[in-house]
Amino acid sequence: MAVTRRADGGFDWRLRTPRQSLAQWALWLGLVALTVWCWEVMTETTIWAFVSDAPRQAADIAGRAFPPRWSYMERLWGPLWDTLNIATLGTLLGVAIALPVAFLAARNTTPSALILRPAALFVIVASRSINSLIWALLLVSILGPGLLAGVIAIALRSIGFIGKLLYEAIEEIDARQVEAVQATGASGPQVLTYAVWPQIAPAFWGVSVFRWDINIRESAVLGLVGAGGLGLQLSGSLNTLAWPQVTMIIIVILAAVVASEWVSAKVRHAII
């Protein structure tokens, strides 16, 4: 902040000093220049003939894709059930592992800030940094194709997501409530269940259901790499250029996602 003294003795005030304003202006200029340059690079490698052809191509595929093949639905119930199971079991497994990891990672509940906390943080970062599709790719080559690979892939990715949001919630709890329970002579586990858990329970349920909702979407594509579910059908239909079937699968995925979103909204509404 820039407070300056005028000649007549009064004060002048501006939010930024001239130097700060100049720096800010330069930053914006740089950003604009970068955008222009990126546009240049992008257009250089674009084959414009394809782009100008795009509306016709899109119309062509849409024409082949409609109407969806409704009769294909009877072969989709099984994969849909698989997809829901992958998402649900994967989320449950992820939550079961993420909960203790979060308590180890939170600064105010970790039993050892020197060893266990960095280890737990590493688990969270490692899990988050790898997409579930990549986890599935690895697991399919280790476990072979099928549901198990999908479930574990979803779980591995969920640990980081749930663990991170949960340990942040734990670090933000009201320390006075913890102090009050400690002052009664409660043991460590009792302090966790009486003072910490009630404060993070809404975050826990909210985050878990939210992750389940995301996992429905993710498990729908895991089949693309052989981990079972709707994605397996999707890749089959795409490979055989069966566009009406692709449309049908997309409709099923959309319906599943809308349904899961509805459930998660209901659950979150109920717990807060």
Binding site: D174, R176, Q177, E179, A180, A201
Partner: peptide, 11 residues
Amino acid sequence: MIFQEYALIER
């Protein structure tokens, strides 16, 4: 012990 802002377990 009795606390300033009650320090009850609110939930």
